[in-house]
Computed example of a mutant assay.
Amino acid sequence: MFSGSIVAIVTPMTDSGQLDLEALRQLVDWHVEEGTSGIVVMGTTGESGTVTEKEYFAAIDAVVKQAAGRIQVIAGSGAMSTNKTITLTNQAKELGVDGALVVTPYYCKPSQQGLYEHFKAVASHCELPIILYNVPGRTAVDLLPETVAKLTELENIVGIKEATGDVSRVTELNRLIETPISILSGDDATAYDFMKLGGHGVISVTANVAPGLMSKMCQLAQAENWKQAALINDKLSGLNDKLFLEANPIPVKWALYRMNKIGCGIRLPLTELDSRFHSQVVTALEQANVELS
């Protein structure tokens, strides 16, 4: 249901830190033009943890309306509590999104049984197609393939964003899962290898700054044209590395600012990219032939 290059879109902000919805709308149009398959709004890269609930829904609404059916829109709607996750997912549905990206509950470190019951409750109380989101580096809990396989028996669990960076997870998931789902990489640096082993695409940070290249790489991989896909992946390799010199989305927001796509605003506790990393990010952008202002 979801495949190809799906951008985990940033949330543009003014210098004073206010949401810049007009810049967000322009980014949506750019991604449509560049061939991006889908947009995740209000995910980790979108600074969902730093915005108010009013801002959260305003950003989703702006993306859905600007997309106007031209591109799939997925809302990040995971929270630490099951009840809040259900509420956010259902409210996102009312705004017209095509699916929900639901991260594992963070900080509270539930067991595998707790994770299963959490996602089962969300799936049973929400009608949206749900993409599970496993990112143990941020949440301190790992949604194991055996648990994912059980969850895919539920009708509206349609995919997983696997952000461990462990490409062997693709093989394990495909071995265990009986009902086909979208298996998506959440790690740009290993996305090519992930797809080569049977993944269906990537929810990408790098696509924020090089949407055309990332889309083309995914299209070639889907066509099993691995040689040409590898050439593009090589061009993206610098970005896949340097956009994580500091915590995401710090470097990617600075890169977009340097490209004159957004303002320099970012919300505390995140701060602007340290100046000692600027030249490395610029070099990576130039390697990918990204036009700078």
Results as ranks from 00 to 15, higher is better:
Leu101Tyr: 04
Leu292Lys: 11
Ala58Val: 05
Thr152Trp: 08
Ile131Trp: 09
Val122Ile: 15
Ala284Glu: 09
Leu273Asn: 11
Tyr116Lys: 01
Ala210Thr: 00
Tyr107Arg: 11
Ser279His: 12
Val10Gly: 00
Ser48Trp: 02
Gly114Thr: 02
Gln18Asp: 01
Met259Gln: 10
Gly78Cys: 03
Glu155Thr: 05
Pro110Val: 05
Gly238Ala: 06
Gly212Cys: 00
Thr89Ile: 10
Asp142Lys: 07
Gln280Gly: 03
Val281Leu: 01
Pro251Cys: 09
Gln66Phe: 02
Gly99Ala: 14
Ile177Gln: 03
Thr171Cys: 05
Val135Tyr: 01
Arg175Ser: 13
Val281Pro: 14
Ala23Asn: 09
Ile131Cys: 10
Ser111Tyr: 02
Gln91Trp: 12
Asn289Cys: 05
Asp98Ala: 01
Ile262Tyr: 13
Ala140Ile: 00
Leu231Met: 15
Gly165Gln: 04
Val7Cys: 01
Thr139Arg: 02
Ser48Pro: 00
Met80His: 12
Gly49Ser: 07
Gly165Ala: 12
Cys108Lys: 09
Val148Thr: 10
Met259Thr: 02
Ser237Met: 05
Ile181Met: 07
Arg25Lys: 14
Gln91Phe: 12
Ser16Asp: 10
Cys218His: 04
Pro211His: 00
Ala68Leu: 04
Thr139Ile: 02
Ile39Thr: 05
Asp61Phe: 00
Thr45Asn: 12
Arg276Asp: 08
Phe194Met: 02
Gly165Thr: 13
Val148Lys: 09
Ser293Cys: 13
Gly43His: 04
Glu246Ile: 03
Val64Gln: 08
Leu268Ala: 14
Gly159Val: 04
Asn289Gln: 09
Asn156Arg: 10
Leu273Ser: 11
Ala189Cys: 04
Gln222Cys: 10
Arg169Met: 11
Ala62Phe: 04
Val141Leu: 12
Thr89Met: 11
Leu144Gly: 03
Tyr192Thr: 04
Ser204Phe: 00
Asp234Tyr: 02
Thr164His: 06
Ile266Met: 01
Val281Gln: 06
Gly159Pro: 02
Thr104Asp: 08
Leu143His: 06
Arg276Phe: 04
Ala100Met: 04
Leu256His: 03
Val282Trp: 13
Leu197Asp: 08
Lys261Val: 05
Gln228Leu: 07
Val97Glu: 08
Ala230Asn: 14
Val103Gly: 01
Tyr106Cys: 07
Glu291Asp: 08
Thr147Ser: 02
Ile86Glu: 08
Thr147Leu: 07
Ala255Val: 09
Asp98Val: 00
Lys196Pro: 10
Val167Tyr: 07
Phe244Asp: 12
Leu270Cys: 05
Trp254Phe: 12
Val122Phe: 15
His125Ser: 15
Trp254Gln: 11
Ile181Lys: 06
Gly238Thr: 10
Leu27Trp: 00
Leu144Lys: 11
Glu53Lys: 15
Trp254Ile: 03
Val141Asp: 09
Glu153Phe: 02
Trp226Gln: 08
Asp274Trp: 09
Val97Met: 04
Ser16His: 02
Val73Arg: 08
Met13Gln: 11
Leu24Cys: 07
His118Cys: 07
Ile266Gln: 05
Gly186Phe: 14
Leu239Val: 03
His200Lys: 09
Ala79Lys: 15
Ile86Arg: 11
Glu53Met: 11
